[in-house]
Amino acid sequence: MLDSTSEHELLILGIGGQGIQLIGKTLAQAATSSGRHAMLAAEYGGEMRGGPSQATVVIGERPLRSLPILASAGSAIVMHDRFCGVVPERLRAGGLLVVNSSIVDPAAAGDGYRVGGLPATDIARELGKPQTAGFIMLGAFNALTGLVTHEQLVDAMRSLLPPYRIEHADSNAAALLAGSDAARDLELSGTVAA
């Protein structure tokens, strides 16, 4: 939830092929469609798959002062442990850290954060769509933060699909819902800074 002056900064980290850029874009688009200011900055290598992939999303009620290279973030989604060294550098103490516990050990993700581990890759496999792990994480993250409504997230996901990918709309929506459901049972561990 946001008050009128604050900005919510999210760092999304993983490897190419995990949908890092797509989930960042989906959240930023959902926020924009709901009439708020959003910013999406991306950094990724030339590789289609396997290289480092990072997206940052900022959402606020007013024109944003956050930088396209974030000074610090209030929350992070970590999809893969190969490139999550950025977390201690940028995630503020007490921040929300949601990790893909199928790959990343939540206990090793860092101290001083509210950590939630979600076996997104396993849940995605159970759904029969392993490529939707990113949307599971996004559904969970949004349920935890309430940045946009679940419907806004689903609408944004549908609006961003190109015509040749439209057959994935329903499985992506199922993944967002599965993430949102999983978040309900999620216990955030770790210390919360005052």
Binding site: K25, A28, A31, T32, R36, H37, A38, M39, L40, A41, A42, L64, P68, I69
Partner: peptide
Amino acid sequence: PLIAQTRVG
């Protein structure tokens, strides 16, 4: 590059 490639409302 930041102006060319960042998405902003």
